[in-house]
């Protein structure tokens, strides 16, 4: 009996302590977040953005990083445009997933929104982009491929998905431009999905293809086609035999990043709150597991770093799109 009372008293004290320390810790942000949070996945269920959003929601809840409940909302349409339009009219209790599409939509004339209107909160992940050639291809290395394109830019059929102006496309354009290829004459075959690109490369219906490393790695390891270059800054653990573009003498690093975007005009306190939350989240085991399963790399940057990063990205994309002939 005494024991039970003792345990009860102890736990009571602990709870009290926890509460008071909690209160102390929340002194600055006790006002935020005030209500349920909305988390926008600018896509339908079943895609990468939706899955990422739901995974973040789950980790935030299970690891008790944020107290307020978080609801994932699907706002698909216009390559993210619909979701971000919605976000631009909300207060600080709504967040959204973003990617370089936020920048390129505007540059391609598909959106009036610019990244500057929002509050960038974090950059979370990146995927690296690979260029692969079919088996039995005359091009042994990325340099061979680029030499051929320099001679005759239209002579190689390059498969990409799911549209012109996306990362897979632009990373190739950037590499080719750096090598000195006339990029306006490149011959792209645009497929609806990464799976279709893979099929056509396996079947030899295109000569080369560009896709995310997570999509192409397994086929490369099985010897079904050959990855000749990746857009990362150094070689990847799972693909030790594949050189980076830099090693091939093409000085580029091209991340395909995803991050978190907040609505316009968030206060310092609110930004600090999310800096803390996300820096805590990226350290959890479940987050690391998620990255590994999907073949993503940790690319965490806090709000200030992300703001700077987006500025650089914007300049890079502006130049690239101007020269590729895509601009409207």
């Amino acid at each position: 009996m005494k024991k039970i009372v003792g345990v009860a008293a102890l736990s009571f004290a602990l709870i009290l302590g926890a509460c008071s320390s909690g209160n102390a810790g929340e002194k600055d942000d006790s006002a935020y977040p005030k209500k349920n949070l909305e988390f926008i996945a600018p896509a339908t269920p079943g895609g990468g953005w939706d899955a990422t959003a739901r995974a973040i929601q789950k980790i935030m809840k299970e690891e008790e990083i944020i107290d307020q409940s978080m609801t994932v909302i699907n706002k698909p349409g216009g390559n993210g445009e619909v979701g971000w339009q919605y976000l631009s009219k909300k207060d600080a209790h709504t967040l959204a997933i973003d990617s370089s599409l936020l920048i390129t939509n505007n540059l391609l004339g598909q959106s009036d929104l610019t990244y500057e209107e929002f509050t960038p909160l974090a950059t979370l992940t990146t995927e690296w982009i690979s260029v692969a050639v079919k088996n039995g291809s005359p091009y042994e290395t990325a340099t061979d491929l680029m030499e051929q394109l320099k001679k005759d830019p239209a002579s190689v059929k390059i498969g990409i998905a799911p549209g012109l102006g996306n990362n897979d496309h632009l990373s190739f354009v950037k590499a080719a431009k750096t090598f000195g290829v006339d990029i306006t004459k490149l011959n792209f075959l645009v497929y609806e999905s990464g799976g279709d690109v893979m099929t056509s490369l396996l079947g030899g219906h295109v000569d080369a293809a560009t896709m995310a490393v997570s999509e192409s790695a397994e086929q490369h390891l099985a010897g079904k086609f050959k990855i000749v270059a990746i857009s990362a800054d150094e070689r990847l653990e799972e693909l030790p035999d594949v050189p980076t573009w830099t090693e091939e003498g093409v000085d580029i690093v091209f991340p395909h990043w995803r991050g978190i975007l907040g609505p316009p005009d968030m206060t310092e306190d609110e930004i600090t709150y999310w800096n803390e939350a996300f820096s805590e989240m990226v350290e959890t085991d479940s987050w690391k597991q998620l990255l590994e399963n999907n073949g993503w790399e940790d690319f965490y940057q806090d709000s200030a770093e992300t703001t700077q990063f987006l500025k650089e990205q914007n300049e890079m994309y502006t130049e690239l799109i101007d020269e590729s002939g895509l601009q409207k």
Partner: peptide, 28 residues
């Protein structure tokens, strides 16, 4: 057999099992 989603439905399934840590591909 090859890690290629052949239809909208299998694409959704593929995405989901990738999240669970399976790597569909020719080696599966």
């Amino acid at each position: 057999a090859m890690g290629i989603p052949g239809s909208g439905t299998t694409a959704v399934i593929l995405g989901a099992i990738v999240m669970l840590g399976l790597k569909p591909g020719p080696l599966l």
